[in-house]
Amino acid sequence: MDAEKLNIKTLAAKYNYEKKALIAILQDIQEACHYLPQEVLGEVSKTLDIPLIDIISVATFYKAFSLEPKGEHQVTVCVGTACHIRGAPKVLDEFEKKLGIKTGQTTEDMKFSLDSVACLGCCAIGPVVVVDGNYHAQTSIRDVDKILKKY
């Protein structure tokens, strides 16, 4: 779904205006806009008749959502237990160093967002780094530069 074409009423209609579909609706907005814009959330509040504060509670509770705009490319480093034992923290450190930002932040030029995730379920190939949906297996600190250069 495209950010420009996002029509909250249409979206809500897709879910029959059901309050229980709030999370699903927010997920759709997140996918389209790469974050949850303030005005959009205000509209959702009115359309679904849910107090804005409740929507914010949900939006900030779940990690899938971001109230801040994300970068063009999403770099996610898995820090699950198996990946942790195999050296994921060093890889994450290296990304922080090379991008000049901390985990959870976005570079100033809005090119990269760096996040960590607790487990992607690919423990056999850890440490795992996902960039824009592409999985990189057995990442070492040497690979960090190579991965970033691709984008």
Partner: peptide, 25 residues
Amino acid sequence: GKAIGFQNRGHNKKISTPFDIRSEV
């Protein structure tokens, strides 16, 4: 009023208005 509520979770949990600005309600 429903102007303030819980946000985030875990050790980052806090109570505030939406977007930490004055609430309309």
